[in-house]
């Protein structure tokens, strides 16, 4: 592409793809979400140039949040280099010309799918989640009218029925991701499909915004909001992870992916947060199979 056509493309789009009216509408929903933590605010989700399920909600929230001075990072299951992350990063490089990075500490806006970065976030950062199904009660109560009423009246007994079923069937709460939480003692919220290992990190310094494009809902957690994972007295919440250190960087405190390496059942465990793993290896840490070539 020549410089001229590249400029023509850029000027054809408004900053960050969405038009200003749409961004205002989304910002109003975000502000309402921040004012009522955990409450699902309906918004007029737009058609985006990607299929539903690929992060249309997150992309719209990011588009409404980004300013030209921002530095943008996208992760997909913790990784910066997967298809989803690369294409969303490119999308905003092209339509917003914002600086992008893979380093958690450098980013001001981080869009994520299914993970919270290992490195603690700061007050000047915004974490944007892609949410497939925002309604935590959906699989128990199919009626939207009824679930809204349940939220309004704080009737959350049903959520514990789900956890009860887990224990009755598997002997422990087997919900491992999208583990329901209660926000500030009021709304029960689906934290998007992050592993339950990440649940304790939901109480953080950064602003957290959740966007569900297909379901047309935005919700939010202001900094330092109280977020409690639901559990039973005799079956307390357990943010478990694989009992293993990372095979590349040796970290014992990070969430791990299990990678099958051949047909004979060999496997290795690696940090799901690629930036965290890389930074540790750069700092000289090394795991069991971590020889860098």
């Amino acid at each position: 592409m020549t410089t001229q056509t590249a400029e023509a493309t850029q000027s054809a789009y408004n900053f960050a793809y969405l038009d200003e009216q749409t961004k205002r509408m989304i910002r109003r929903a975000i502000l309402k979400g921040l004012a009522v933590p955990g409450y699902q605010v309906p918004f007029a989700s737009r058609e985006m140039p990607m299929p539903y399920g690929w992060g249309t909600g997150g992309v719209q929230v990011s588009a409404a949040t980004l300013t030209p001075e921002d530095c943008f990072k996208v992760i997909d299951q913790g990784a910066d280099d997967t298809t989803n992350a690369v294409s969303i990063r490119k999308f905003f490089e092209r339509t917003a010309q914002v600086e992008t990075t893979t380093h958690t500490a450098e980013a001001t806006v981080i869009q994520t799918r299914h993970r919270i970065p290992e490195e603690p976030l700061r007050e000047d950062q915004v974490l944007v989640y892609q949410v497939p199904i925002p309604e935590p009660l959906r699989f128990l109560e199919p009626s939207e009218v009824e679930t809204r009423k349940m939220h309004a009246l704080e009737e959350y007994g049903l959520m514990h029925v789900k956890l009860y079923e887990d224990i009755a069937r598997h002997g422990a709460i087997s919900t491992a991701y999208a583990y329901p939480v209660k926000v500030e003692g009021r709304y029960v919220m689906d934290p998007s499909p992050i592993p339950k290992f990440d649940n304790p990190k939901l109480e953080m310094a950064a602003i957290q915004l959740f966007g569900a494009g297909r379901e047309q809902r935005i919700y939010a957690l202001p900094p330092y909001t109280q977020v409690v994972s639901l559990d039973f007295e005799d079956h307390p919440f357990d943010p478990s992870k694989a009992e293993h250190p990372c095979d590349l960087c040796g970290a014992e405190d990070s969430y791990l992916d299990e990678v099958i390496t051949d047909d004979a059942g060999s496997r290795m465990f690696v940090c799901s947060d690629t930036d965290y793993c890389l930074a540790r290896r750069d700092a000289g840490h090394e795991g069991a199979q971590g020889a860098r070539g």
Partner: peptide
Amino acid sequence: VSAGGNVGERLMAVGARNYG
């Protein structure tokens, strides 16, 4: 939902939080 969950639902709805 299992029979136990069905019977337990009303208990949980009024605040029972002990599985046993």
